[in-house]
Write a protein that binds this DNA or RNA. Structure first.
Lengths: 224, 224
DNA sequence: GGGGATCTTGACGAATCCCTGACGCAGCGC
DNA sequence: GCGCTGCGTCAGGGATTCGTCAAGATCCCC
């Protein structure tokens, strides 16, 4: 879920944006002035910032410049001012888009999607690490001591399901139906065979697994 | 010098934009309809596209979608229409910004700078190098030991898809649908044939590839 | 229309992977 | 102690998949 930081001193607009954005599946944080906005962005780095220029404590462009000293998060500026110079200032300070009030919510959402699409190119999907091996879901790759580990398609699928649910218990039925299909829900044999292969390839001591843990009678669990 | 492709059927506006952009140090190419715009973008890939929606031959959103099938160049849309739906359509088709006429030149230039600044982050270096060969995506050229390597169109497309996703695993379906089209998702034969040709032309030892790596049962990976 | 490059298609060993059954072991209830 | 269940291990046969080659089919430029 993408997190959006909305910065505006108009509490009414703030609430309206929060509701709309949450309804569209975004995770929303808010701030009412420049100082708290910068603080919030630092403590919980958002995936995107919506920034009103008319803040009580700081100039909008100054907020952007401050933010840009350490973050490249996409910034969409809102403003009541139509003046061309305001737009130029904000954009050159580091903003990515500029929308003048009043604006349509549909347009705001579309511009948001465009910005996020762009930034998704650079954002690396985080790799999950343990002290023994690293799983990079984006690159579809597993490394151990810097060395690539060759996994067969089935091994990978199984590892993927487990890694996507870190620390959570994945039932045997869930694993079987996600890897082999719903029709194989009874073939718990498969799990034992492939789990053993995974452990041989990934665990330092396959006999005493520390990251690929079996919960007897129920399923398996991935421990980062 | 950044090159900008301006697409507009209004020859007056086209000339005005050309003069303004050139005065600001951009290298300008122009096109008057969708078909020639796509052709121009393919033959001389620009660093940015300014696209008027009101083209005589194609729907604007369609032009963007076509372009997006093989290019991620930033697209700034111009339009006389203020309707929110037009903006949403264009942005969701893959545009990065939308400006309604009449617009201030200063604002256009500022938005242009913002887009170029953003794309500078993602732009891959013009040439991707390995210790065996070099791929220049912009110039559409592959060299090895300083010598140009002749690739057939299909070979190039396949190499391009792989090189655009360095280190990432590209699935067979992804490769097939990007090179041959979605209807060919089953023809894994093609991949084997062309991958062999690529390796013969690019790998020092085609028998033990180090840069064009196959992941059995899943796909292929380019290793810089 | 001719000739060359390029793209499809089929076939073949070789390598790899998936499934299967058998066996031993540990934990548990009786 | 004994049977039962669930788990880990192993090895081999059958099925896929891969790399390779070569023969048409097709396209395109002259």
């Amino acid at each position: 879920m993408t997190s959006v930081l909305v910065v505006d001193d108009d509490s009414y607009l703030l609430r309206a944006l929060r509701i709309t954005l949450q309804a569209h599946g975004y995770d929303v944080a808010t701030a009412a002035d420049g100082r708290s906005a910068l603080l919030a962005a630092q403590q919980h780095p958002p995936g995107l910032v919506i920034l009103d220029l008319g803040l009580p404590d700081m100039d909008g462009a100054a907020v952007i410049r401050k933010l840009r000293t350490w973050s490249r998060v996409p910034v969409l500026v809102l403003s009541a001012r139509h003046g061309s110079q305001d737009k130029v200032d904000a954009l050159d300070a580091g903003a990515d888009d500029y929308l003048t009030k009043p604006f349509g919510l549909e347009e705001l959402l579309a511009r948001l999607r465009a910005l996020l699409r762009r930034s998704a190119d650079t954002d690396q999907p985080a790799a999950i690490m343990t002290d023994a091996f690293t799983v990079d879901l984006g690159k579809h790759r597993v490394t151990r001591d810097g060395q690539d580990i060759r996994l067969t398609p089935t091994e990978w699928k199984m590892l993927e399901v487990l890694v996507r649910n870190p620390e959570k218990l994945v039932t045997q039925q869930q694993l079987l139906s996600e890897v082999w299909g719903p029709a194989y829900a009874k073939e718990t044999n498969y799990l034992r065979v492939y789990m053993a292969q995974l452990r041989r390839k990934l665990e330092p001591e396959a006999a005493t697994p520390r990251h690929l843990i079996t919960e007897a009678g129920i399923g398996y669990r991935f421990q980062p």
